[in-house]
Design a protein around this nucleic acid. Structure first.
Lengths: 189, 189
DNA sequence: ATGCGATTTTGATTTTTCTCAAATTTTTCG
DNA sequence: CGAAAAATTTGAGAAAAATCAAAATCGCAT
């Protein structure tokens, strides 16, 4: 069901019947297994997806190491920001960390909706604003000085991530060594 | 003159004469001296401003230290993202680092423009997308491991900031000690 | 030009974090 | 269930960065 997405959009601005009809036609539901990639490095992000169930992370390569850029879960709208907005090849991958169900719409259909249903631009703007604010919050977190401060902030704001994601993936997100994070978690630091 | 702002907006989407008229009426030009605050901590960000000339930084307090969150300069649109979008009191301050000229519009007028001139939402969305991408780029920079890597990345992408801003302000932005940054700059690290 | 305050640089030492290596625990799947 | 793989924890030593203290330089106002 696409219901939870409709609820989200309607909470921003009432949608016309035609727009609802258009979205219902264009939205595609997809399922992934844990470990599957929704977006590969070098590929242009062609879809924007709403997570019905499960969790993903985006990551990029640096010196052959996978660096996590963020985690997203049910209720979130996911894209590779830069690639989708600029329609250039992505430096990021998006990986399912759990069995995953998403509803997605492609770039062209989305742009069509923006052009033909003016109120939909409000949805687009408000959602973009929301994700921008969240991006700034991650910046706030990463500028914390010590590894322990970063960990504690993440624990406070996103305890679910610490429960559901791997230590190694969280470590690269925080810019901390895997072993250091393990020591922090077990109270040795 | 508000010309450079109009050029920016028109490059995103053609604006109707009425909208241009509305903006011309509502935009207010303000000048600040170096060191002046455009936004104080605890104040709700009421204006979104386009920088005609000069540079600013946003910062917040942590343990009585001012932590720089970003630098913005001529051609940029500046706000305290979180406070303006959510209309809650800001944890950030915005400080002029040089003599500054901005053109600003207040929150209510902007919301009015979004409601009455649908095409203006496109401007809003596209600008927000652009700043979102830039925010993600800062995250990329901060996740670099060593202090030197962060410095070199900033030098590569924003050499003007390194020229125009104080070492101490750049240091808190990068999450690096002032003395460490000084040593990196002089090649001792 | 000159002196004061702010900013930046330099030095020595301590603390934090990383690295490498290995042991342990957990998860996956035939 | 049980073996293999993956993930996490632990330990010891090395490297990076922070801290504290002081000197040097810069920028501005008189």
């Amino acid at each position: 069901m696409v219901n939870s997405l409709v609820v989200l959009l309607q909470s921003i601005v009432p949608l016309s019947d035609e727009l609802m009809q258009f979205l219902a036609e264009k939205l595609e539901t997809k399922n992934y297994d844990s470990g599957d990639l929704l977006l590969h490095e070098g590929q242009v992000a062609n879809n924007i997806a709403f997570i019905e169930k499960g969790m993903v992370r985006s990551y990029y390569f640096k010196d052959n190491e996978k660096i996590t850029s963020w985690f997203m879960k049910e209720g979130d709208v996911i894209i590779s920001v830069e690639s989708f907005f600029t329609q250039k090849p992505s430096y990021e991958c998006i990986e399912a960390l759990e069995p995953l169900t998403v509803h997605q719409i492609n770039y062209n259909d989305l742009q069509y909706a923006y052009r033909h249903y003016p109120e939909f631009n409000i949805c687009g703007r408000v959602l973009t604003e929301k994700y921008y604010v969240m991006s700034e919050e991650r910046l706030y977190m990463l500028r914390k000085r010590t590894s322990k401060e970063k960990y504690l902030y993440l624990l406070d704001k996103h305890p679910d991530i610490l429960r559901r994601a791997r230590v190694g993936d969280i470590a690269t997100f925080l810019g901390v060594n895997l072993e250091t994070l393990s020591r922090i978690r077990s109270g040795k630091i």
